[in-house]
Structures are given as structure tokens and as C-alpha cells.
Design a protein around this nucleic acid. Sequence first.
DNA 1: GGTGAAACTTCTAATAA
DNA 2: TTATTAGAAGTTTCACC
Lengths: 159, 159
Amino acid sequence: MGKIKLDEIDHQILDMLIDNTRIPFTDIAKKLLISAGTVHVRVKKMEESGIIKGSSLMLDYKKLGYSFIAYVGVYLNNTSQTKFVLERINEIPYVTVAHITTGKFNIFCKIRAKSTEHAKEVIFLLDDIEGVYRTETMISLEESINDKKRLMHSIFKNL
Amino acid sequence: MGKIKLDEIDHQILDMLIDNTRIPFTDIAKKLLISAGTVHVRVKKMEESGIIKGSSLMLDYKKLGYSFIAYVGVYLNNTSQTKFVLERINEIPYVTVAHITTGKFNIFCKIRAKSTEHAKEVIFLLDDIEGVYRTETMISLEESINDKKRLMHSIFKNL
DNA sequence: GGTGAAACTTCTAATAA
DNA sequence: TTATTAGAAGTTTCACC
């Protein structure tokens, strides 16, 4: 699980794919002045090494009817139950990310729901998990996803 | 910005693309017993309507040397500064998401850094923004991204 | 490591139903 | 709206640097 070294070409390939996963390898090849075969081989290597875990669509959840976002902090009766509760939490599809954290909460997660009513149901699901003492919810009024992912990735090169 | 209705075919196309954005349209067509041309037209429509905002790679940030994740709650001197501060926060590449929230914090964001040392620098950048009163950091000891994205999406159908 | 070309597969737009 | 079709475009492999 150590750090893997990529060269400049790999980073540039990643930058382009991060931006648009369906960009043709021939386009990448043209921009980087290498052959399409090379792009193919390098992408395959990054997939095999696990650096590229997969690809996914960025969807407009609001347009799909999911406009409610909240963060929920979870207090447990006992820290030893953390792993068990985390597994139960991950079974709830409306929970998009969950973390074991330092600080006041044992677990901290993000939920995405259809409405406040629906969010209430999801939070009740969390509260009902065995070992959960209580939860604390923070509602998001506005989400801004940092679109500088590509830029951020470029900075990796300076590591 | 209203909700857009998709039919069963659209949802199934989305499910497959969410799983792997580079799956050939011909494969999707075969599985759904429609033509590749139809898949092409439908995907184009979902792109045009904004439901599909784009595509991106899922990378293993640990393998890229970014193993530190934290959530930072931001208190402002004055709520009227929220928009301004949010813009400054979004200029920091290591901030991956930022929210305007209800509750004790005015803004709540997620950061991804190389190390605790690096995270400290990022948090100092946040603290230095004009209008920020103080910050409160919660360190993630373990992140588990809900891999049921596809399942979650399927549930959209029942809306 | 990389290339370039061949063989194969997929995309895409026009046309037809 | 969807299907068919066909030329254009992209992918992938491989013999050879």
C-alpha cells in the first residue's frame, strides 16, 4: 500500500482522464507526442497497480431529485463497537461516505437524501443501529465541490 | 433546475456507466437489447440536460501520497462574509468539498493532504482568510466510501 | 521501455421506418 | 423515438527498435 512513483507522462495522462474519462487515447497521444499504444500500456499499468481504481459519472443529484445533503456525527456507547457500527452504516445507501474520526464523534458520515422528510428517515436508520448512543446532524445549505481536482492532481508531481 | 424524469432504460444506462464510464455503447446495447445508436442518443440527451455533468477517474490517493483526510469546521466573524470566505476556501486545492451549513459552523469543508505537517499548512491557509474567526478540525482515521453508488442510483427509479 | 501498422472494435450521424 | 447502416475513428496487439 506504499506510494507509487509516476513520471510526468503518467501524470499528464491522468490529468486528461480525470477531466474526461472518455477522451480517446489517440487524442492523449497527439497532445503528449507519444503513440496511442503507449497511452494504452501506461493506463493499463496504472489500473493494475491500483492507482486508477475505476471511473464514474458525475451526476447532477439535484436534477435526480436528491437535493438534501447533511453530515451526521455519531456517538457510540463504546468505542469497541466502531467497526461493527461502520459496517451497518455502510449498508445504508443514502450514506455516501463514512469516517472513523478523532474528536467528539466516533464516526462521521455524509448523507444524501430526497427531502428533509427522507433525511429524517435516514437519520432514524442511523440512530437505530445497535451501539449508537446518539447522533448530531449538520445540514448543508449549499455544496461547492472543488473543481480544481485536475490542478490538485498536478501538484502531486511535486511530491 | 427542476427534477428530470428518466425512464427505465436511461437508468440502466446510467447504472452501467456509473460502474465503468468506458464501457462500449455496443456492450450496453447488447445487455439492454437496444441498438448502440439508441444508447448514443440517450447518453447525449442526458449530457445535454445536465444530468450527466461529466466523468472522472477514481484514484487511490493513498498510493499517490495523499493519505491525510480531515474535516474542518469554520466559524466566521460575521455571517455576511460567508460567500466571500467560501470563494477563498475554494481556491485552496487541498480542499475537496466545502459546504455552507446550519449549526455551530458557518462553513464546513473536507481537506486531503500529504501528511499532518501538510494538513497544518492547509489549515493555516484557512485560518488566514479574512473573516475567519477560528476553525475546528476533525481528523479522519479511516475513510470508507460507500460503494453502493450504483445501488443508490437504482433507488432513484422509485421516486 | 517505445513505435507504427494491421486487425479488430466502436462511434456517430444520416437515413429510413 | 428507435433501428440500420456504413464510413470514420479508436483500441489493442505485436514484430521490431
